[in-house]
Nucleic acid binder design. Structure first.
Lengths: 355, 355
DNA sequence: GAAGGTTTTGCAACCGGTTGCAAAAATGTT
DNA sequence: AACATTTTTGCAACCGGTTGCAAAACCTTC
């Protein structure tokens, strides 16, 4: 029995092995000479205990180094304070910021993120079942690419769910917080037109993703108002550097490329920028690029990407807020929270033209 | 009681509210007309049940959509399959890869990562207590900057812990997996000397971090063998782009800067590269840079950083492996696993000199 | 078909907590 | 001091599972 294993061994022997036993409620009750309920009550807030009792119990508890077992507690309270944090964006640098803020925000509210990495093969059903088996209080689905049906799996399993970075809908059937991708597309188009670009390209993320579709729709709509503008478009395989680079290389090999591109995402944009530079062309003099997200890296001076900022801090705060309110009121009416995006001007688009 | 809330409502009424009740063992037992233990046994592998019984139970279970509650189970089995994944590196892009691989690796083994974001203010004790309250089976501390004492808090609380990306020690007092930072420092110095650089700089990460210290030690040692070489050194405030950029700006403003720098980390290197470019200097013709980590971004064509690869996949696999083996044998002898690093040649150092 | 061995099953206690209820103690009122 | 009221406390049942043990059921074998 190594000495380092103090403080608390109420050791018991099995197969010649000493095990570290956790201190339980009973141990404290015994030491303090009070009932189990008394101990329980001093550790659940809102319960009635006299100050004498509380002192006695707390003394015994601290002497033994006791702290209550949350999981055992959850059995009767039906609250684990565990929140499933589900995502499939483990390759987009933006999501490190997202995870950072989610974990911090949840922790600040006494909630614990159970992280689920949804790789392609893992199916919705099994993740949902697993999260149910762990009795999570709720699930936050943080992804702009997962189909809406995914979140519904959780909802149908009776678990409060908020869909973060999901598709905006005017008639949401579950909590959803994010941006209006159609509006973003429009904004990007407007920005490009405003700077006098005529031959304009849309370099989207994965075609099936709703975020890609919506951005394209908005982009198209805006361009249609300007008959002088020429639209070309294509999609990349993923929201990744390589995909963006590859697609831009393909475009540059073609007969003629656009004067400026709206890329589906910053990391895609950075890939495209790399391809442009490799081809010996300059940004913004030869080709303009506008991205979307404004991840930290985009502001780095050697990247300096003009982009549309997605207010992730607000999205995350709102998501957590909605989750917390759902925990209190599970049948809360589904709500969509949409945050406005804004163009962040840096160095990859030419200056606005006077015309 | 909304229709979407099927499949399973054994509804009960409270304050006029319908609640979704989880299906329990008892429900299944009742429906199948068998004992509770029978149901329990069909769902715990290694238990003896006749095939008849199993069929009966499984039929009833699937009819009700039952799956066992892991947390209740954990009360008697003393296994939650929850693993605390603790880190303070939520700003280094490398760690997105780290989280991706950790979560996937743990999931593949049926373990669940409970993510803990250790911001500066949160203290070790309280995180340790919290993880204990959730009865995690083990804790993986993934950080190259946290002091070793931190991991010891968990160990002293009786929780199996492996320190990933931690400081190598020839006499480890807990499981530790990572690289030999002294050797890395040496390797960097050797590489720079080999390329004929004479005036050589060490641009370290945060000075107090053991990883910084060790890299510096190795770097220094190697340089001492070459009296013709001149060493200068400084430290940045953090492993971040901004810190690297700022420090390099400071160096460039100085009377004379080194011909080549070993930066404590890739993201630091990228910041330094940015500063160099902004100053109108070229890499590698004016200044050489070698980083450490080889995160994905370093291979991007527009960054193309020569660096020392830290084999994160192997480190993570080994960490998980050690954790799994500790779960089976908690008093396993502490072990240090050290993986070799290798120089990845790209475009930020000049070619080796023949001399 | 009975004896003997093996497997399957159910009972009941337990894991570490919480909580409704009634008894006990403390407090207030006259 | 006697009584009514409020607060505090302990008992015992419960949350949703697991498991040691003994009884029951099933196989062999003679």
């Amino acid at each position: 029995m190594p000495a380092c294993r103090i403080p608390n061994i109420i050791g018991f022997q099995t197969m010649g092995e000493a095990w570290l036993m956790a201190i339980t409620l009973d141990d404290v009750a015994k030491l303090a000479g009070v009932s189990r309920s008394a101990v329980s009550r001093t550790f659940t807030d809102g319960a009635s205990v006299s100050s004498k009792m509380r002192r006695k119990v707390e003394k015994a508890a601290s002497e033994l180094g006791y702290s209550p077992n949350f999981l055992a507690r959850s059995l009767t309270t039906r609250r684990t304070k565990l929140i499933g944090l589900v995502s499939d964006n483990f390759h987009n640098p933006l999501f490190l910021e997202v995870f950072d803020q989610f974990t911090r925000g949840l922790q600040d509210r006494g909630l614990r993120p159970l992280l689920v990495n949804l790789s392609v093969e893992t199916d919705a059903e099994s993740s949902a079942r697993m999260l149910q088996q762990y009795s999570v209080d709720g699930v936050i689905v943080a992804s702009s690419t997962l189909p809406p049906a995914f979140s519904k799996t959780f909802r149908d399993a009776g678990v409060p769910v908020v869909n973060s970075f999901g598709r905006y809908s005017s008639d949401p059937d579950m909590h959803i917080v994010g941006i209006d991708n159609i509006e973003c597309g429009r904004m990007a188009a407007h920005e490009l037109l405003n700077r006098g670009y005529k031959n304009i390209g849309f370099l989207g993320g994965p075609e099936p993703a709703t975020s890609t579709q919506d951005r394209f729709t908005g982009f198209q709509n805006e361009l249609q108002k300007h008959p002088e503008a020429v639209l070309s478009y294509s999609f990349s395989e993923a929201y990744s550097f390589d995909a963006g680079r590859k697609e831009m290389q393909r475009l540059l090999r073609g007969a003629s490329h656009a004067e400026a591109y709206f890329c589906g995402d910053d990391v895609l944009s950075i890939g495209a920028l790399s391809a442009i530079k490799e081809a010996g062309l300059n940004v913004p003099s030869d080709i303009g690029i506008i991205g979307l997200n404004d991840m930290q890296m985009s502001g780095w001076q050697n990247i300096n990407l003009t982009t549309i900022r997605q207010p992730i801090a607000q999205i995350i705060n709102a998501s957590i807020e909605l989750m917390v309110s759902m925990l209190e009121k599970p049948d809360r009416y589904p709500e969509a929270r949409v945050f406005p995006c804004a163009v962040i001007e840096r160095g990859t688009l030419r200056a606005p033209q006077e015309n």
